[in-house]
Every structure is written in structure tokens, then in C-alpha cells.
């Protein structure tokens, strides 16, 4: 296994590895591990953090005892009156929104990233094209919020200073309130996310494509395979491991998405995602118990994807 990577010949003291690890272990314990346990502890307590969460149970409603905050985090947004309303309210909740984000943003970034990677490989202005697509990665979320204001702005006058509504009214349509219409605003925000993250996917996928030996492709061309077939039956299977990594990495990123929503709608108009809900509970409603319970739910949701990523890394190590 991977343990054999270290040359046996390199003798060392028992302490040496830990000396090298010490600075990293110390800061990570303080800044990540300690807050994580603190969070788990607080999620079982009431809003002031002094009493058990069970005291906040209402007499007539359902109660999960010490896990009361989790009941709130998981079920408060759900309307249980009928199966239809359960589905509807779930789909409109922060969890539903996060699922929309994952479905659309991951397919959007990976799909477009792959497309640009494929196309730019065949042109001479490859570097320029890639730089343009990648550029938004260097822009802050606050800045991106300002940038997209001039795309989504909704004006009540004839003149629109938002690009999209200007096009719509120019074609004779009515302006659309992109950011304040529930449902639609999540799509509008996801578009911003795709704009920012496509460059990331493109770069990694492009490198994977370039590492595919050209002889294989040439050979299939000679055999008369169409470009479409070459793509689906040769390229995609070869770079599949990379695609999986990109997808899981993006899923982790998207689950933690916060800034775009925070900057552009503040989580209003039903555009809230899980991380925003946590922030709102903690800092707007000052309910640390509920906020931390939402945080724990979020961590639990991310863990499986992290495990996939780490497992793949170890497989790679083993192959070496």
C-alpha cells in the first residue's frame, strides 16, 4: 500500500514527524477542531447556550428533547399538512434551494467547463479564451454582486439599466424582477455561481484532456469514428476519474455556498440556502442553538462527498 512510499533507508527519530506537523496541527486544532466541537455542543443547548435545548419545546407541539434544535433545523420549513405541501415547502426551503444549486451549478460548471476545454484545444487563441473564462475566479463575491447588479437590475421606468431587462423590453416584453421573484432568483444566483466557477472546472478538465495520448484519438479517427463517438466512447471514459473529482469538489463547494446569496439578495425572497440560514439564525435572530444545529446538518451533508474525494486520492497513491 501507500505506506511503502517512504524509503526504508531514511531513518528518523520518533519525534521528528511530529515536529514537522506541530505548527499545522496546532492552528488547525484551534481554528477548526475546537470550533467544531463547540458548535456540536451549542447545538444541543438553548439560545443563550446555558440550558438544554429541551427547555424550548412548546407544550403542544412535537418535541425532540435535547435534539429540539435539530427538529427545528430539519422540519421548521416544512409544511406537513399534506404530501403535496410537504414536497412544495421542501422544494422552496433552504434545503430544496441547495439541491437546486447542486443540480444546476454542478452540471453547468462541469458541462460548460468541459465544452470550453474541448473547444479551446482546437484554436490558436486558447490561452486568451481560457483566461477570460477563468477571470471571475479572481473577483471577490462582493465585487461580483456589484457587477451583476447591472445585469439583473429591475427598473420601473421605460429605461432599464439592467442588461437583461433592457434586452427584454427592447424585444417588446415586460421587465422581470430577477432577484425578488421566488424560484427565479435562485436560478439567477446560480448563473452567477456558474460564471464564477466554470473556469475552475475548465482548467482541470482541460489538463486531463491534454493528457490523453493523441495516438488513441488518431487511431480511432483513422478507423472512421465520428468526433461525437470519439468524445463519448474514448475521451470521457479516460478522463472519468477526473470528472468525478471535479464533480465532488464542486458539490462540496456548492453545499457551502454562502457569499453569493448573502451579497445579492441577503437570503430574502425565498433564495435562502443552508449556510445563509445558519448565518441568519446566529447573527440576525441570535439563536446560537438553532444556528449551530443547521451548521451540523450542513457538515453531515458534506462528509460523504469528502470521503469520496479522499478515497480516490488514496487509490491514486496506491497506484503509484
Amino acid at each position: 500500500m501507500a505506506e511503502t512510499v517512504v524509503p526504508k533507508i531514511m531513518k528518523q527519530g520518533k519525534v521528528t514527524p511530529w515536529l514537522y506537523l506541530a505548527p499545522a496541527l496546532i492552528v488547525m486544532t484551534i481554528f477548526i477542531v475546537y470550533p467544531m466541537f463547540n458548535t456540536i455542543g451549542l447545538s444541543l443547548r438553548d439560545k443563550s447556550g446555558t440550558a438544554s435545548a429541551a427547555v424550548t419545546c412548546s407544550e403542544d407541539g412535537p418535541c425532540w428533547g435535547i435534539f429540539e434544535n435539530y427538529r427545528y433545523a430539519l422540519t421548521d420549513e416544512i409544511d406537513p399538512s399534506s404530501p403535496a405541501t410537504i414536497w412544495q415547502s421542501f422544494w422552496a426551503s433552504s434545503y430544496g434551494n441547495n439541491i437546486k444549486w447542486i443540480l444546476l451549478m454542478v452540471t453547468g460548471t462541469v458541462g460548460l467547463g468541459l465544452l470550453v476545454a474541448l473547444l479551446s484545444d482546437r484554436v490558436r487563441y486558447e490561452a486568451l479564451a481560457k483566461a477570460l473564462i477563468f477571470m471571475p475566479m479572481a473577483i471577490s463575491f462582493v465585487g461580483a454582486g456589484v457587477i451583476w447588479k447591472f445585469v439583473y437590475d429591475y427598473g420601473t421606468q421605460q429605461v432599464q439599466i439592467g442588461l437583461l431587462n433592457s434586452i427584454l423590453t427592447g424585444l417588446g416584453g415586460k421587465p422581470v424582477a430577477w432577484l425578488s421573484t421566488p424560484g427565479l432568483n435562485t436560478l439567477a444566483l446560480i448563473l452567477v455561481g456558474v460564471w464564477i466557477w466554470t473556469g475552475f472546472c475548465m482548467t482541470i478538465l482541460s489538463a486531463a484532456l491534454k493528457s490523453v495520448p493523441s495516438e488513441i484519438i488518431e487511431a480511432s479517427r483513422v478507423d472512421g469514428a465520428s468526433e461525437w463517438r470519439i468524445f463519448w466512447q474514448i475521451l470521457v471514459p479516460i478522463i472519468m476519474p477526473t470528472i468525478v473529482v471535479v464533480i465532488t469538489t464542486m458539490v462540496i463547494n456548492v453545499l457551502k455556498v454562502f457569499d453569493i446569496v448573502y451579497v445579492m439578495t441577503g437570503g430574502n425572497y425565498g433564495s435562502e440556502v443552508i449556510a445563509n440560514r445558519m448565518y441568519t439564525e446566529m447573527y440576525k435572530n441570535f439563536h446560537s442553538g438553532r444556528g449551530t444545529a443547521v451548521a451540523v446538518v450542513l457538515i453531515v451533508a458534506i462528509v460523504p462527498f469528502m470521503i469520496i474525494n479522499i478515497r480516490r486520492f488514496r487509490e491514486q497513491e496506491a497506484m503509484r
Partner: peptide, 9 residues
Amino acid sequence: LQVVPLQMT
């Protein structure tokens, strides 16, 4: 540990 969201710390 990348799973830990920054906001809660």
C-alpha cells in the same frame, strides 16, 4: 476538515 463551514467558527 475542509467540511467545516467558516461562518460557524
